[in-house]
Design a protein around this nucleic acid. Structure first.
Length: 472
RNA sequence: GGCCUCAUCGUCUAACGGCUAGGACAAUGCCCUCUCACGGCAUAAAUAGGAGUUCGAUUCUCCUUGGGGCUGCCA
């Protein structure tokens, strides 16, 4: 490793594949990624699958797919289950140097101890009963039963400088000897994490605030192993509307769920970056480049933030409107019926007209299905609120007659053909029935846009249907 | 309970001792308009409470209150 590379920052996103990637995870990944890119450093993805019971390959896939979809690319990829030998090595070192010891206490014993301490009003922690077991005793018991490995927590104050919170201090006397492995081949989070951060050359640890109390344990481990210290930044939690943590254990939605509803990556990223961070010159809409250029931990919020779905909707609508028809059609691909795709030109026009009304891609079909198939409607729909049945009938007949002889069905030509009538009869008297007849709906794009998209033949048919309804 | 931590409109936030506390989402009203949406304009809406430091506190200190996280052989 050269001197120059040595100075590069290196960050990691370290999710455990025990569930699909959620909003909180993405925000953590995003801030790591943004800082790494801002500094011209590296971003690594580390799958923390030491919990064999709950880790699943499909979740690892989901995490990778989701990050790719969002554009959060990683430079290196690791999986903890591939690195068991490394943890074993350090575990043996710790054991040999007596920084760690085997513990054979049963879960029942531990639970009783815990309850007893609690009822006496003293802070619960492991008593250290197995700390003084002799080597012979340990070897003997290991042949018959499984023991866990505990780290001898040094008794002192540990403090670190957090990039978002400043100095944070803990008293390790309150912590007790933490279990760092269930055996030589089964490392646990606090330990595997420390080994990996060292071996992978991580410089900055950026993670959720829920890990803040793990930090002193990890620092204590680093100290006895002679690992260099790291820079920490603990991000405020993302909260639900009840102000409670939004975690995988809650019913928090996964990124896949948001994708399925029709949220797009630009909106998700923009929304999330604003949840806990703000650019210096207050703005809401930011490109990825601007985020990278301007990101800094000094501007990261300390207090937890409530997830605000309306703002996400607004941003999503904004980014949707920025797209051109081809981009929109390909984004819409999984949402629309195959039949619609056969009418490419019409679909293109529909997409451009309806994008103003769309907040999520998932709304597109219900918003625009009438373009492809007119549903039955009540004849009262055709009558404008300030009009009556007779005028409506007359006006529609007039429109029908006008359109039937119109060759050029372009927007401008349509307007100049119909406007005289609309001006003479009152715009609402003419345009409302026309639009209602064409769409079968109370709310829709304007009549000229509908005529243009539907074409002469279909427009006339729909108007005839309306006339028939009124004369029956 | 213990430890850590946080506190500006309903929500996301700006103001890093000095204007009538600014913006955005949402809400409401108006304009545009045949409708819906987009867009434009406008209104309402906040420094949790109490001491202290200071000529002056949203900002600094302390206390109170309230919220959150952790307290796993999960991460």
């Amino acid at each position: 490793m050269t001197q120059k590379e040595d100075k590069k920052v290196k960050l990691r996103f370290a999710p455990s594949p025990t569930g699909p990637l959620n909003i909180g995870g993405v925000r953590t990944a995003l801030f790591n990624w943004l800082f790494a890119r801002h500094e011209g450093g590296l971003f690594v993805l580390r799958i923390e699958d030491t919990d064999r019971q709950r880790s699943e390959a499909r979740y690892e896939e989901d995490i990778k797919k989701s990050l790719e979809w969002l554009g959060l690319s990683w430079d290196e990829l690791y999986r903890q289950s591939d690195r068991l030998e490394r943890y074993k090595f350090y575990l043996q070192t710790l054991l040999e140097k007596k920084y760690a010891y085997y513990c054979f206490c049963s879960e029942k014993e531990l639970e009783d101890e815990y309850q007893a301490q609690l009822s006496q009003g003293i802070p619960p922690k492991y008593s250290g009963r197995c700390k003084s077991l002799s080597d012979e005793e340990v070897q003997k018991r290991l042949k018959k039963e499984n023991g866990v490995i505990r780290f001898k927590m040094p008794e002192k104050e540990i403090s670190f400088n957090d990039l978002v919170r400043g100095r944070v201090t803990f008293d390790t006397r309150l912590i007790g000897d933490v279990i760092i492995a269930k055996g030589l081949n089964e490392p646990l989070y606090n330990f595997a994490n420390v080994v990996d951060d060292f071996e992978m050359g991580i410089t900055h640890v950026v993670r959720g605030e829920e890990h803040i109390s793990n930090t002193p344990r990890q620092i204590a481990l680093q100290e006895v192993l002679n690992f260099p210290s790291l820079v920490y930044a603990h991000l405020p939690l993302i909260l639900g509307s009840n102000k409670k943590k939004l975690s995988k254990r809650d019913l928090a939605k996964s990124i896949g769920d948001y994708k399925a509803e029709g949220y797009i990556p630009e909106a998700m990223i923009n929304f999330l970056v604003l949840l806990g961070w703000h650019p210096k010159k207050d703005r809401e809409i930011l490109s990825i480049k601007e985020m990278i250029d301007e990101f800094s931990f000094e501007r990261v919020q300390k207090a937890g933030g409530v997830f605000n779905p309306e703002k996400l909707d607004w941003l999503n609508g904004h980014y949707l409107r920025l797209k051109n028809p081809d981009e929109l059609i390909s984004a819409l691909d999984v949402f629309i019926p195959e039949k619609w795709k056969e009418e490419k030109e019409r679909l293109k026009k529909v997409v451009m007209v309806e994008k103003e009304r769309m907040k999520r891609l998932g709304e597109f079909v219900s918003l625009s299905d009438f373009f492809f198939e007119l549903r039955d409607y009540e004849k009262t729909l055709l009558i404008w609120k300030k009009s009556n049945e007779k005028d409506t009938f007359e006006n529609l007949k007039h429109i029908h007659a006008t359109l039937i002889s119109l060759e050029d069905f372009s927007h401008e030509s349509l307007e100049s053909a119909i406007n005289p009538l609309a001006e003479a009869q009152g715009r609402g008297n003419v345009l409302w029935p026309l639009r209602a007849a064409l769409s079968g709906r109370a709310a829709s794009p304007g009549p000229f846009e509908l005529l243009d998209i539907l074409g002469k033949k279909e427009s006339l048919e729909r108007i005839s249907v309306a006339i028939k309804k009124l004369s029956s």
